[in-house]
């Protein structure tokens, strides 16, 4: 057990004991190697379920709005619970966004911030193994020892299997917290920000189109990307609306395009690039390439960053008189 994990458990036990929180949302080990599962702790006795390691990939902010919803069919008084949550930089930014969008109340949240050096992307480990499965894995410092289902062992540098969003992450500490656990993370490495987007932009329109045709023909419309996304809390998604009916239920490319363009656009000025959509996709589609494009534009056109503080207005709920009009045919 590492130091952060130990302190985290102690702190959570205290918070539950003294009634500061009713439930704590954290990560626990899942049965498969290099996988964790969200964990809801309601009693100090259960804090040992909590883990903190290099595979706490999920963005826990996704799980928060549901906790503050009045249970359906409940009669009489209902007080929303006091909720604790462990937050990496990205989780905390999603939390900021959700507070600003009034999906979760700040005063009933207790955020434990943890510095993050980046999480392992299970898909990348899978790719390193090829066509066989992952039988076992052990994280050891900066590398991970994996055993394939064919019995072959391999040592992989964590740097080589970091989630793509973690590689480019500029906010490795929680931007909003009640308490911080563990040491500050090492400073973010110098990476060319939006390098993947810039490279993609330099391709010809035909190449760009063909890329998305290829990627989106993989989509099976399971909506894992949407469900894993903290920003996708709509009770009814435009993808499933019937009046108006924006798109069909098929995997016809046209429908899939409308879905992914629509979803990406609904993230405009809101996406914190946590990578949850990419990690959730069972087909390994790089949806970041869409979302990051919008983030890049938001940064360049409106000089805005997404969800760094509770005070700042988000890019699309504000404007400036002198905003760029160069995209217009006749301004």
């Amino acid at each position: 057990m590492n130091q952060v994990e130990e302190t985290l458990r102690q702190e959570v036990a205290k918070l539950l004991e003294d009634g500061t929180i009713d439930v704590f949302v954290g990560h626990e080990a899942a049965s498969l190697p290099l996988k964790t599962s969200p964990c809801f702790v309601r009693s100090p006795k259960e804090v040992d379920r909590l883990v903190w390691n290099r595979i706490c990939t999920s963005n826990l902010a996704t799980y928060l709005p549901q906790l503050f919803k009045r249970p359906v069919g409940l009669k009489g008084e209902w007080t929303p619970p006091k909720v604790g949550v462990v937050a990496k930089g990205c989780d905390s930014r999603s939390i900021v966004g959700l507070i600003k969008e009034k999906q979760i109340p700040r005063d009933r949240l207790f955020i434990i911030g943890v510095g993050c050096e980046g999480m392992i992307d299970r898909h990348s480990v899978g790719r390193a193994l090829g066509v066989v499965g992952l039988a076992d894995a052990k994280v050891d410092g900066n590398s991970v020892q994996v055993i394939g289902t064919d019995g072959r062992e391999k040592r992989i540098d964590i740097a080589d299997v970091l989630a793509a969003s973690c590689r480019e992450c500029q906010h490795r500490e929680a931007v909003l917290s009640n308490l911080t656990v563990g040491e500050a993370p090492s400073s973010a490495p110098e990476v060319s920000h939006y390098a993947n987007v810039a490279e993609f932009e330099s391709k010809s329109p035909q190449e760009r189109w063909e890329h998305w045709v290829g990627e989106l023909s993989r989509c099976i419309r399971c909506y894992a990307c949407r469900q894993a996304c903290p920003n996708c809390y709509c009770e009814e998604c435009f993808a499933e609306e019937t009046a108006p009916k924006w798109l069909g239920v098929t995997t016809d490319l046209s429908d899939v395009f409308v879905f992914h363009l629509g979803r990406a656009f609904h993230q405009a000025g809101r996406c914190v690039d946590c990578g949850a959509c990419v990690a959730a996709c069972p087909q390994g589609i790089d949806l970041r390439l869409l979302n990051q494009k919008i983030n890049k534009d938001v940064e360049e056109l409106f000089e805005a960053q997404v969800s760094l503080s509770l005070e700042e207005a988000e890019a699309l709920s504000s404007f400036r008189m002198e905003d760029d009009q160069s995209f217009m045919t006749e301004p």
């Binding site: 189109w209 656009f265 405009a268 534009d297 938001v298 699309l316 995209f327």
Partner: peptide, 16 residues
């Protein structure tokens, strides 16, 4: 205007 700037750019980005 902000929405349109982003949308126009996004559509072009995917090859439309």
């Amino acid at each position: 205007r902000r929405k349109f700037a982003l949308l126009k750019s996004l559509l072009e980005y995917v090859g439309i």
